[in-house]
Measured scan of single mutants.
Amino acid sequence: LKHLCRKALRSFLTTYQVLALPIPKKMKEFLTY
């Protein structure tokens, strides 16, 4: 489930946009992995 969620997010968010999100650092590391 997490993998699918990440894949969906990565499909419409660039790494830069993910880093700009107001989310915890650990979550950013997970999303930009």
Results as ranks from 00 to 15, higher is better:
residue 1 L to N: 04
residue 1 L to W: 08
residue 1 L to R: 03
residue 1 L to D: 04
residue 1 L to S: 02
residue 1 L to M: 06
residue 1 L to A: 03
residue 1 L to E: 03
residue 2 K to F: 08
residue 2 K to N: 01
residue 2 K to S: 05
residue 2 K to I: 12
residue 2 K to P: 01
residue 2 K to H: 00
residue 2 K to G: 03
residue 2 K to Q: 03
residue 3 H to R: 12
residue 3 H to L: 08
residue 3 H to M: 05
residue 3 H to Q: 11
residue 3 H to A: 12
residue 3 H to G: 06
residue 4 L to Q: 07
residue 4 L to D: 01
residue 4 L to N: 04
residue 4 L to V: 05
residue 4 L to F: 08
residue 4 L to S: 05
residue 4 L to R: 12
residue 4 L to A: 05
residue 4 L to K: 11
residue 4 L to W: 13
residue 5 C to Y: 08
residue 5 C to D: 01
residue 5 C to P: 06
residue 5 C to W: 11
residue 5 C to N: 01
residue 5 C to G: 08
residue 5 C to R: 10
residue 5 C to M: 12
residue 6 R to V: 12
residue 6 R to T: 07
residue 6 R to P: 05
residue 6 R to Y: 05
residue 6 R to Q: 08
residue 6 R to A: 10
residue 6 R to L: 11
residue 6 R to D: 04
residue 6 R to F: 07
residue 6 R to N: 03
residue 6 R to C: 04
residue 6 R to I: 11
residue 7 K to H: 01
residue 7 K to S: 04
residue 7 K to A: 06
residue 7 K to D: 05
residue 7 K to P: 00
residue 7 K to G: 02
residue 7 K to T: 04
residue 7 K to Y: 03
residue 7 K to V: 07
residue 7 K to E: 10
residue 7 K to M: 06
residue 7 K to C: 03
residue 7 K to L: 06
residue 8 A to R: 05
residue 8 A to Q: 02
residue 8 A to M: 06
residue 8 A to H: 02
residue 8 A to Y: 06
residue 8 A to I: 11
residue 8 A to E: 00
residue 8 A to G: 01
residue 8 A to P: 03
residue 9 L to D: 00
residue 9 L to C: 04
residue 9 L to S: 08
residue 9 L to H: 10
residue 9 L to F: 06
residue 9 L to Y: 07
residue 9 L to K: 12
residue 9 L to E: 05
residue 9 L to R: 12
residue 10 R to G: 04
residue 10 R to F: 07
residue 10 R to N: 07
residue 10 R to A: 12
residue 10 R to T: 09
residue 10 R to C: 09
residue 11 S to Y: 13
residue 11 S to K: 14
residue 11 S to G: 12
residue 11 S to F: 15
residue 11 S to W: 15
residue 11 S to V: 15
residue 11 S to L: 14
residue 11 S to H: 06
residue 12 F to P: 01
residue 12 F to M: 07
residue 12 F to C: 08
residue 12 F to E: 01
residue 12 F to A: 09
residue 12 F to R: 00
residue 12 F to S: 02
residue 13 L to C: 05
residue 13 L to E: 06
residue 13 L to P: 00
residue 13 L to H: 06
residue 13 L to F: 10
residue 13 L to D: 00
residue 13 L to W: 08
residue 13 L to S: 02
residue 14 T to S: 07
residue 14 T to C: 04
residue 14 T to D: 09
residue 14 T to L: 10
residue 14 T to Q: 07
residue 14 T to W: 11
residue 14 T to R: 13
residue 14 T to H: 10
residue 14 T to A: 10
residue 15 T to P: 01
residue 15 T to W: 15
residue 15 T to F: 14
residue 15 T to M: 13
residue 15 T to A: 14
residue 15 T to K: 08
residue 16 Y to E: 15
residue 16 Y to N: 14
residue 16 Y to W: 14
residue 16 Y to L: 15
residue 16 Y to D: 14
residue 16 Y to Q: 12
residue 16 Y to R: 12
residue 16 Y to H: 09
residue 16 Y to T: 13
residue 16 Y to M: 15
residue 16 Y to S: 14
residue 16 Y to P: 03
residue 16 Y to I: 15
residue 16 Y to G: 13
residue 16 Y to F: 15
residue 17 Q to M: 13
residue 17 Q to H: 04
residue 17 Q to W: 14
residue 17 Q to D: 11
residue 17 Q to G: 12
residue 17 Q to K: 07
residue 17 Q to R: 09
residue 17 Q to T: 10
residue 17 Q to Y: 06
residue 17 Q to F: 12
residue 17 Q to V: 13
residue 17 Q to L: 13
residue 17 Q to I: 12
residue 17 Q to C: 10
residue 18 V to G: 13
residue 18 V to P: 02
residue 18 V to F: 14
residue 18 V to M: 13
residue 18 V to K: 15
residue 18 V to R: 15
residue 18 V to T: 12
residue 18 V to H: 14
residue 18 V to N: 14
residue 18 V to S: 14
residue 19 L to P: 07
residue 19 L to H: 08
residue 19 L to F: 08
residue 19 L to M: 06
residue 19 L to I: 06
residue 19 L to A: 08
residue 19 L to Y: 12
residue 19 L to D: 11
residue 19 L to C: 06
residue 20 A to P: 09
residue 20 A to S: 09
residue 20 A to V: 14
residue 20 A to T: 06
residue 20 A to I: 15
residue 20 A to F: 04
residue 20 A to Y: 09
residue 20 A to R: 14
residue 20 A to W: 13
residue 20 A to G: 15
residue 21 L to P: 09
residue 21 L to K: 11
residue 21 L to Y: 00
residue 21 L to V: 00
residue 21 L to I: 01
residue 21 L to G: 06
residue 21 L to M: 08
residue 21 L to Q: 09
residue 21 L to H: 00
residue 21 L to F: 07
residue 21 L to N: 08
residue 22 P to G: 15
residue 22 P to Q: 14
residue 22 P to K: 15
residue 22 P to N: 15
residue 22 P to F: 09
residue 22 P to W: 15
residue 23 I to V: 02
residue 23 I to R: 04
residue 23 I to L: 08
residue 23 I to P: 04
residue 23 I to E: 02
residue 23 I to H: 04
residue 23 I to D: 03
residue 23 I to M: 12
residue 24 P to L: 15
residue 24 P to K: 14
residue 24 P to W: 15
residue 24 P to Q: 04
residue 24 P to F: 15
residue 24 P to T: 03
residue 24 P to S: 01
residue 24 P to V: 14
residue 24 P to G: 03
residue 24 P to R: 13
residue 25 K to E: 06
residue 25 K to M: 04
residue 25 K to S: 04
residue 25 K to V: 05
residue 26 K to M: 07
residue 26 K to E: 06
residue 26 K to S: 09
residue 26 K to Q: 06
residue 26 K to A: 11
residue 26 K to F: 13
residue 26 K to C: 10
residue 26 K to H: 03
residue 26 K to L: 06
residue 26 K to G: 09
residue 26 K to D: 05
residue 27 M to E: 00
residue 27 M to G: 01
residue 27 M to W: 15
residue 27 M to C: 04
residue 27 M to K: 00
residue 27 M to I: 12
residue 27 M to D: 00
residue 27 M to F: 12
residue 28 K to F: 12
residue 28 K to S: 06
residue 28 K to D: 06
residue 28 K to T: 06
residue 28 K to L: 14
residue 29 E to T: 02
residue 29 E to Q: 04
residue 29 E to D: 10
residue 29 E to V: 06
residue 29 E to A: 05
residue 29 E to L: 03
residue 29 E to S: 01
residue 29 E to K: 03
residue 30 F to M: 02
residue 30 F to G: 01
residue 30 F to V: 02
residue 30 F to P: 04
residue 30 F to T: 01
residue 30 F to S: 02
residue 30 F to Y: 05
residue 30 F to R: 02
residue 30 F to K: 02
residue 30 F to Q: 01
residue 30 F to A: 02
residue 31 L to P: 01
residue 31 L to T: 01
residue 31 L to R: 00
residue 31 L to K: 00
residue 31 L to D: 00
residue 31 L to S: 00
residue 31 L to E: 00
residue 31 L to V: 05
residue 31 L to F: 08
residue 31 L to Y: 00
residue 31 L to M: 04
residue 31 L to W: 05
residue 31 L to I: 07
residue 32 T to V: 13
residue 32 T to E: 08
residue 32 T to I: 08
residue 32 T to L: 13
residue 32 T to A: 12
residue 32 T to P: 03
residue 32 T to C: 12
residue 32 T to G: 05
residue 32 T to Y: 13
residue 32 T to D: 03
residue 32 T to W: 14
residue 33 Y to W: 12
residue 33 Y to P: 01
residue 33 Y to D: 10
residue 33 Y to G: 13
residue 33 Y to V: 10
residue 33 Y to M: 15
residue 33 Y to A: 14
residue 33 Y to E: 13
residue 33 Y to R: 14
